[in-house]
Simulated scan of single mutants.
Amino acid sequence: MSPAIHPALAKLPAPRCSFTSDNSAAAHPSVMAAMLAANNGHALAYGADPWSEQTQQGFKQMFGADSEAFLVWGGSGANVMALVSLLQAGECVVCSDQAHIAVAETGAPERALGAKLLLLPSVAGKIHPEQVAALGRTLGSQHHPQPGILSLTQATEMGTVYSAAELKALCQAAHQLGMRVHLDGARIANACAALGGTLEALRSISLDAGVDVLCFGGTKAGLIGGEALIYFHTEHARRAKYVRKQVNQLPSKMRYVAAQFNALLEDELWLTLAAHANRMAQRLYLATRDIAGLQYAQAPITNGLFPTLPAACIAPLAAWCHFWEWDSSQSQVRWMTAWDTSEADVDHFAAGVRALLQHYTENGNAL
């Protein structure tokens, strides 16, 4: 049974969408149409089809002829595949203490790798080159796992982004220790949109920064489901096709994943959709930042907002329009916009937040 809607919200129009996650959004109509068009007759499996070849060429146009794309089912699987293909015996994976691979993948990397995740303290989800360089003290010691991979998240779990200069410095620090760099780009489109919104901006925070393997997110960017792992160096890609099968990330009817990406890459639709999601987050911030009892540590950079609000208000508001609580110790929540979030959705939600918190304040901090 659904919880009753609070009286302060009962007469307000609820948003058409939730603010749970861009993972909850529908697939873009162009993606649906591309899949339907691909659903005609027989095609060879496992990527030996024209749709998959088109995807490969599309990514080569973006990242250069030496790059190689591997399509997979989902984000966690993509991360596991990348890490397994790069890690060597006796090594560990270094990442932020808020990285998705550390806090939201149920230990999948550790289980698949049989290796340690070494977590570095972060601020707003970001780590710094000095922290990576300090790992040099363990090099050569048989009593310590050797730093093998630096895994970075762009945009971070806190919605922040690394600048091109920051990423380049991190990659340089890692490479000086002989490490490889994996970039978890489940929301790379949103980060790129925030950093200039051009193909040059995308390259500056991936290939040109020194990243070795990029997970180019599709599921959160408008696909039904699918991610692309982009290997920038032939030597790293050599094992990838075997690892993909081994970690259960090889789609048999790959044309359907490829068709989705072809729609997303055409005319840079991925960037258009991400820029819209970012704008909707900014609109929500501007519409709510003056509400008494609600606080932001910073304005949104991408499509995630992380305000704190009175604990008593969280459940009633989420019952009216769903979102996730983020850090209960601080009464912090996460509001996320997506490619299909409309201005009306934002305005309705902001009106609901304002109405509930005003009711709470006017009634002596009680609901």
Rank of each mutant, 00 (worst) to 15 (best):
P3Q: 00
P3R: 04
A4W: 04
I5F: 10
I5Q: 05
I5E: 04
H6K: 10
H6R: 08
H6P: 09
A8P: 02
A8V: 02
A8L: 03
L9D: 06
L9V: 07
L9T: 01
L9A: 03
A10K: 14
K11E: 14
K11Y: 02
K11F: 08
P13I: 14
P13S: 13
A14M: 14
P15Y: 11
P15F: 13
P15G: 08
R16M: 05
R16A: 10
C17M: 05
S18W: 14
S18E: 12
S18K: 14
F19N: 06
F19A: 04
T20K: 08
S21T: 14
S21L: 00
S21V: 02
N23G: 13
S24D: 02
A25P: 09
A26I: 10
A27I: 04
A27T: 07
P29Y: 12
P29T: 11
S30E: 15
V31W: 05
V31Q: 06
A33E: 12
A34C: 11
A34Q: 11
A34W: 10
A34K: 00
M35E: 12
M35C: 09
L36C: 00
L36R: 09
A38D: 01
A38Y: 03
N39Q: 10
N39W: 07
G41L: 01
G41M: 06
H42M: 13
A43N: 01
A43D: 12
L44T: 10
A48Q: 14
A48K: 15
E53R: 15
E53G: 07
T55L: 15
T55A: 13
Q56D: 15
Q56R: 15
Q56I: 09
Q56C: 10
Q57I: 02
Q57K: 11
G58M: 11
G58T: 06
F59W: 14
K60L: 02
Q61C: 04
F63M: 07
F63S: 04
F63E: 07
G64P: 03
A65T: 12
E68P: 02
E68M: 09
A69R: 00
L71D: 00
V72H: 07
W73V: 01
G75S: 08
S76Q: 09
A78D: 07
A78S: 09
N79H: 03
V80R: 02
M81G: 08
M81V: 03
M81H: 10
A82M: 07
A82D: 04
A82V: 00
V84S: 00
V84N: 05
V84K: 11
S85G: 05
L86V: 05
L86W: 04
A89T: 03
A89Y: 02
G90M: 07
E91P: 00
E91L: 03
C92L: 12
V94T: 06
V94I: 15
S96W: 06
Q98R: 13
Q98I: 00
Q98A: 14
A99F: 11
I101L: 15
I101M: 13
A102Y: 06
V103L: 15
E105W: 06
T106F: 10
T106A: 13
A108N: 13
P109E: 10
P109N: 03
E110Y: 02
R111F: 08
A112Y: 11
L113D: 08
L113A: 11
G114Y: 12
G114M: 08
G114H: 12
A115I: 09
K116V: 14
L117Y: 11
S122A: 15
S122M: 11
S122L: 10
S122V: 07
V123R: 08
V123H: 04
V123Y: 00
G125W: 13
G125F: 11
G125P: 10
K126Q: 15
